[in-house]
Amino acid sequence: MTEHLRQPLDRQTMANRLAMEFHDGWVVNLGIGIPTLCSNFVHPDRHVVFQSENGLVNYGPLAERGEEDPNLVNAGGQYVVEMAGMAILDHADSFALIRAGYVDVTVLGAYEVAANGDFANWKVAGAKGGGIGGAMDLAVGAKNVFLALEHTTRDGKPRLVERCALPVTAVGVVKLVATNLGLFEITEQGFVLTEIAPGYTPEDVQAVTGAPLTVSPELREFARVS
């Protein structure tokens, strides 16, 4: 009998896979956490433009120690370096471009994502306060909303669900989801499993998913950057 070793995907592999979907020339906005790792993926022939909600357009990678400009940070408060062609906007103009659809894709983290494309990422169960930041504006403004999240909570509950139990960030906007177990498109049929982590079967993934999965006829192993 062949031994199938189950290998959940690491965060960088999840981020790389979503970044592989970025088209040449796209304006890309990355949320905090796993999404930020998308900027480590550099495609040989495609150039993307990174935009940050605090008014940065076309900024560069994270600053090395000693080269930080105290007044140049990304949305996560990390120091970044400037690039030739960079521009600065005030906050109202930055969100104007976000709402008006000039961002081609935003990659965000989430607590829950639903089969109808709703997602929740600003308030945890039982809390009075929440942290919305720019997520609601990005979710309704970006042409594409991708999510990167762990497939289950720490105590094993599904994060991919039929309907969100937590307060939603936006309604019906999510198109593509990468988890540590696979890649999922959201269509009229709900979640469609298109790529799967090594050693897992669709039944394994379904067992920890809170909504019915449609398995793509072209299902393949989760694509990695070679």
Binding site: E53, H91, A92, S94, F95, A96, I98, R99, I132, G133, G134, A135, M136, D137, V140, G141, V168, A170, V171
Partner: peptide, 26 residues
């Protein structure tokens, strides 16, 4: 939402009483 915060402040400084935004619907 942060964009709503920024735009509400912008509106105050632009003589605009209120505005319609798609952010937060639903």
């Amino acid at each position: 939402p942060q964009g709503t915060l920024a735009e509400r402040i912008r509106a105050a400084g632009a003589g605009i009483a209120a505005f319609y935004t798609p952010t937060g619907v639903g």
